[in-house]
Design a protein around this nucleic acid. Structure first.
Lengths: 155, 155
DNA sequence: GCATTCGCTGGGCATAATGCACAGCGGTGC
DNA sequence: GCACCGCTGTGCATTATGCCCAGCGAATGC
């Protein structure tokens, strides 16, 4: 179930040098190629590693503004609201959270002015009662996973 | 600056089949290999594609609970708080947001009970005045980027 | 105590992809 | 008209991949 130190080191290595091959990784880790191959297969089969999708920066796409919006949903409208928000490209993720029918979503926009357009589109839906938005000024800690991997593998 | 449709299709393809090679990608897209090579280089040089890091699932690591915490920071303590939170592995990301010295962070924990331990560690720091936590019940829309890529590339 | 299972090793092999170079060619801008 | 730029299509040496195998040590089960 859990991962061991070799798994942890492998994930770290892949995070640092994503374009590395299995052969090169085995050299760096000091184990046989087949071992790395097997570990990788297992990690993916277990779902620990979901994939190696390209990490796209919204800012470089022209969406430098990030915001988090807390939405209050009318009873029984959750499913409709989810469907609605899934159609908005600027909604990067959406969570149902504790609280009275609350949701939290991450938004991006081309500018602060453009954010208004995005929010209008998000809340322009009958199921949404109220919305409060917080604009991100600085991303002090970018999304990371390595420290957690270390903690989980005693690495 | 912006990306065109070929860029968009390339990013989509890479997102769908991350282990694909440059050669196979060129076959799928119906362009020459050198073109894919050049586009990839450019996208990475521009920062549109930050990398291809492994997408690790915290739940599979034994951290199935996600929460968002809003922190109110004492004036002038922002820097110290950032440093403090960066040392907590369960803090996956941290943003400075609008509001009176507020921050928003994403946390994971091994269980709801374990979340208490994490929160105690997070707020056990003098610079933090108040914290309010929302537990994620359902991840209705997992972090995604493709719809935005499509919007940015008119794809 | 003993046999089995499992993971890691280290090697070989055919196939496939990579990095790099080159010349041709159709647009765009001046 | 001309230079520039991006895309094409090709070739080549090098390297990695996927797959196979036998051996070996440690942990597991009987």
């Amino acid at each position: 179930m859990a991962i061991d130190r070799l798994d942890g080191r492998l994930i770290e290595l892949l995070a640092q040098e994503p374009r590395i091959g299995v052969l090169e990784a085995s050299r760096r880790l000091g184990v046989a190629r087949g071992t790395v191959q097997a570990r990788l297969d297992r990690l993916q089969a277990q779902g620990v590693i979901r994939g190696f999708g390209p990490d796209v920066d919204p800012a470089a796409l022209g969406y430098p503004v990030t915001a988090f919006a807390t939405l209050e949903i009318k009873q029984g409208q959750g499913s409709d609201v989810r469907t609605h928000l899934a159609t908005v490209p600027e909604v990067l993720e959406l969570h149902t959270i504790t609280g009275h029918g609350d949701m939290l979503c991450r938004l991006v926009a081309r500018s602060n002015a453009d954010l208004q357009r995005v929010i209008d589109r998000v809340v322009g839906f009958e199921g949404i009662v109220r919305a409060s938005t917080a604009i991100v000024m600085e991303n002090a800690v970018p999304l990371r996973i390595i420290p957690l991997v270390r903690a989980a593998s005693d690495g």
